[in-house]
Design a protein around this nucleic acid. Structure first.
Lengths: 187, 187
DNA sequence: GTGTTGGTTGAATATATATTCATTGAATTT
DNA sequence: AAATTCAATGAATATATATTCAACCAACAC
């Protein structure tokens, strides 16, 4: 089994290295040779594990879809507490297991123009917006959140989160912010 | 003069087209042929106006450095009002003169890894962080802003703004948010 | 110990994209 | 109107990057 285990481990090593580089430099600026060099391994061998660069990206997104990044609407939980706790959790991962954090950033980046179409479609299946809109509407009724178009507020919130996390993944000087600061966008 | 004027006008057309495409698709996913095709003109001619793709980017950044995107610290103005008004102004441009808005987005994108080194250096000379930190500290003394590390708060604020604007430039469905929602990150 | 499988390499190839350049024709000058 | 300048073209070239492949070697099976 040693051999099979090694293969599996190397596969993981490639995925983690690619994830880190994709987040740090962006997908198009991460060359196959960069990934191979960082693992490290030969460029040829990388194609033994993954059919193509895009295949590697798709595999990462599939991982992301299973991960702890899902948002769900539970009417029983106060929406402000839910969102604060969610951010807290992701920020905590930023230090301990940065890959969870990187994954969150990648999932957002993939939605942007210029990424392979198939990757975008896949990632689009995580819809944080709809449950967030419900949460915001419920929060508005309860007087916790301010007035305003719930859809615009939800987009504003998540795009802000995305922007902050993208930079945190790169900007060494930035410390982890307080989750409540960000949720204040809605209050 | 007709000829010289025409040349100047075409130069501007190239710059505006490139700016829009860089923001919409990203620098590396905007091909020279895309820009030429959108202006429209032949690819060859584009090199008659600009030495290289990077030269085009640098020219845009030089434009951006002169534009209305500068942040300055004036102790006389309440910091929350200043920042709200600033965002209001940029959001207003988003509809009327989208290039001002695009420029704001581009200047943020250039700071990221993967962009040509010279472009990054140039763009780094606009430092919004330092004056914002001063504003935040002064706001904290006045009891307008909440407690917390001013540097982290400033980064958090600008990265959020950047994230929101990047998406606004692409996401047709998003309406213009209320500037005060975003300044609430600091309150 | 021999044969077989499968991991590994890096140079060679294919592809995508930036850049050049010989040529054309319209505008401007003499 | 002849000469000159310069915008304009797009096919040809150069360059960067993804992908393939023939050859090699280590592990494992018998």
């Amino acid at each position: 089994m040693t051999r099979k285990e090694q293969k599996e481990e190397r596969r993981r090593a490639i995925l983690m290295t690619a994830l880190r580089l994709f987040v740090e430099r962006g997908y198009h600026d991460t060359k196959i040779t960069d990934i191979a060099g960082a693992v490290p391994m030969s460029t040829g061998l990388l194609f033994h594990y993954f059919e193509s660069k895009e295949d590697l990206l798709l595999e990462l997104i599939r991982m992301g879809l299973k991960g702890p990044g899902a948002i769900t609407y539970d009417p029983a939980v106060p929406p402000d507490e839910y969102l604060t706790a969610f951010l807290e959790k992701v920020f905590a991962f930023a230090k301990e297991q940065p890959w969870v954090f990187w994954m969150f950033v990648l999932m957002g980046q993939v939605e942007k123009a210029g990424m392979p179409e198939e990757a975008r479609k896949l990632a689009a299946s995580v819809d944080a917006l709809t449950p967030t809109v419900r949460m915001i509407e419920s929060g508005q009724k309860a007087g916790i959140f301010h007035k305003g178009d719930a859809d615009t507020m939800a987009r504003c919130f998540w795009y802000a989160v995305q922007g902050i996390m993208e930079r945190m993944a790169v900007d060494e000087e930035m410390k982890i912010p307080d989750s409540s600061w960000i949720v204040a966008i809605l209050k």
